[in-house]
């Protein structure tokens, strides 16, 4: 799925949802970027870390029946694009809800769950998923 160094390099982003804010226009990005696509050169050196609130709303979603090989155990599972309160969007699984209860615009929270296993060594890794706000 991912090499171990590659996963650990981004552990803070994957685990905690740490993005960046552009010091020039205050737009927030996740995952972190070195350059703000809006301000370009004005933003260089001004991108600061920004922890996200973890709250957002569903923009769109799907239920996957034909998964990636590493996600077979979870089928069917729900994927969603979520717009966070900071006006930045993320892609992740939506869990703890039945598919027929999912609605566009519904409020969700970020949570930390098991993402998958690093084959073939079998190291389990964790990352963000979304859960409905009850």
């Amino acid at each position: 799925m991912m090499t171990i160094p590659r996963f650990w390099r981004e552990i803070r982003q994957r685990y905690k949802g740490v993005g960046v804010e552009c010091g020039n226009c205050e737009r927030v990005y996740f995952p972190p970027r070195e350059v703000c696509p809006h301000c370009r050169r004005e933003s260089i050196g001004k991108m600061k870390e920004r922890e996200l609130s973890g709250k957002g709303r569903l923009v769109t979603f799907t239920e996957i029946h034909e998964p990636m090989p590493d996600f077979k155990m979870m089928v069917p599972y729900i994927m969603a694009i979520v717009e966070m309160d900071e006006d930045v969007r993320m892609t992740g699984q939506l869990v703890d809800i039945d598919y027929d209860e999912v609605e566009q615009g519904m409020e969700v929270d970020v949570t930390i769950r098991r993402l998958g296993e690093e084959s073939p060594s079998g190291i389990i890794y964790y990352g963000y998923k979304f859960v409905p706000v009850r």
Partner: peptide, 24 residues
């Protein structure tokens, strides 16, 4: 790959989410 696929999003699912959005 790192910010869509690793979280379980298949290529099909990304187009499926565009389809659903178009439907909405």
């Amino acid at each position: 790959w790192e910010w869509e696929s690793v979280f379980g999003a298949t290529f099909d699912s990304l187009y499926a989410m565009m389809a659903r959005y178009h439907m909405f």
